[in-house]
Simulated scan of single mutants.
Amino acid sequence: MAGIRFFAAAAEAAGTESTTVDVSSVGDLRALLTERHGVEFARILSRCSLLVNGTRAADDAVPLAGTDTVDVLPPFAGG
């Protein structure tokens, strides 16, 4: 099962900092997380970057394996 790590607002909306999932692609991951965590999480997820093993995954067709780690990163503000 792929490990998912949530950061900042994504963690707050999910109510957890991590979970595991059994999905085959980034698109499937987005759908599953939206189903699990609801509309508010989906709103935040739509603005997040997803990193699969440290590499940005912008395409929903990116495959996921059971050994992958996905980081869900909302936009960060800084100064």
Rank of each mutant, 00 (worst) to 15 (best):
A13E: 06
A13K: 09
F7G: 13
V72F: 04
S49E: 09
L64C: 10
T69W: 07
V72K: 06
T20I: 03
N53R: 15
T19A: 11
P75N: 00
V62P: 00
A65H: 12
E40K: 10
A14Q: 03
E35K: 13
I4C: 02
A8I: 10
I44Y: 00
A77F: 01
A9S: 13
A9L: 05
E17F: 07
V72Y: 02
T67L: 06
R47T: 13
S24C: 05
F7C: 14
D59E: 07
T69L: 08
R56K: 13
A61I: 10
L33E: 11
L32A: 12
A13T: 08
D59R: 05
D71Q: 10
S46M: 07
G79S: 09
A57R: 02
E40A: 09
G38H: 05
D71F: 08
G27K: 08
R43L: 07
A58C: 01
V62W: 00
R30P: 08
A61S: 14
G27V: 14
I4S: 03
V39E: 15
R5Y: 14
L64R: 05
V62K: 00
G78Y: 14
E17Y: 04
V21G: 03
H37W: 15
L32P: 00
E17D: 14
I44R: 03
A61F: 04
A8Y: 02
V21L: 14
D68K: 06
E35R: 12
F7R: 11
G79W: 05
H37M: 11
C48D: 01
L29S: 03
G79Q: 08
A65F: 09
L50R: 11
T19E: 10
A8W: 00
R5T: 14
T67H: 09
T69V: 14
M1E: 10
L32W: 09
G27S: 11
E12C: 04
R5F: 15
D22Q: 12
V26Y: 03
V72D: 04
R56W: 06
T69I: 13
A61H: 07
V39S: 13
